[in-house]
Amino acid sequence: MPFHSPPFITNTNTISVLMSKVLLALIPALLIWVYLYGAGSIIQFFLCVITCYSIELLILKIRGKAIRLFLQDGTAMITALLLAFCLPPLAPWWLSVCACIFAMLLGKHVYGGLGQNIFNPAMIGYAIVLISFPAEFAVWQGSFLNDINIDFKQAFGVVFLQQEAFSYSSATLLSESRGQAIPTNINWLEQPSFYLSISFLIGGLFMLLLRVIQWHIPVGVIIGLCLMVFLAHSNETLLDSLSFHLFTGATMIGAFFIATDPVSAATSNKGKFCYALMIGVLVIIIRTWGNFPDGFAFAVLLANLSVPIIDRYLKQ
């Protein structure tokens, strides 16, 4: 039956255009990540992308969906990249594959695929492997800044052949300072997390400019975070603790790339802001009193859980 309904024109924006803009915004961080962590990170990126796409393809086939339409939209790519940014660069291959499977399967398709998921898929995948295999996350590869430079052969050995990775590892700022006072006088120029945070920030601002995302969520996350830092760390130097929490861990990637996932976020502008505040506050609570060095994934998942109630009460 012919279908005639206004409007008879649309703009050129499609989901794949939207996602490619997100990809474009991720490029600076991607380059820095590869520069810092070298071969392992490249292997990890490819592993995640290939796994996510294979699973997406498989499930779309099983569910009898339009394969081309859904593979083209590029959402699997974003999930894969965000996961790769969360996982240790030298994580064993099965860890990444597990994370991808859980992300695509439990995070996305069990709810009905794109647009239906309650939780952020990448964060589901990450949270499950983080809880299940905490030991693997204790080993975080040292970066180029710590003069650790490994080639493809070594990285391949660690990722696929279970070779010892301890000699490459170093502690991160967040895990180091867990349960202790916030370190003062950090030389940020020596910290890999600082460069990454800045690159995510640049990418995020780029997305704001292209109007891929709106300001409510990133601003809300950062305000929530600052508020909670102010409450929780009032006895320490405010500037130190603020910069510490803004430029370590997943704060920037979370504020601009993870919390802004529209599917699992709240709907109205007020709701989005409230949802983002909640994430910011939860992150500091988990970091300060929780059992994990970085609580971003849990904060996002908890906020995802409360989206229906936020949507109910903050309609406009």
Partner: peptide, 17 residues
């Protein structure tokens, strides 16, 4: 240039545009 069918569109991703 137009919306052609009810089946062909992608699902809503709640982007808020």
């Amino acid at each position: 240039q137009t919306h052609t069918s009810l089946e062909k569109h992608s699902p809503c991703i709640r982007c808020g545009e």
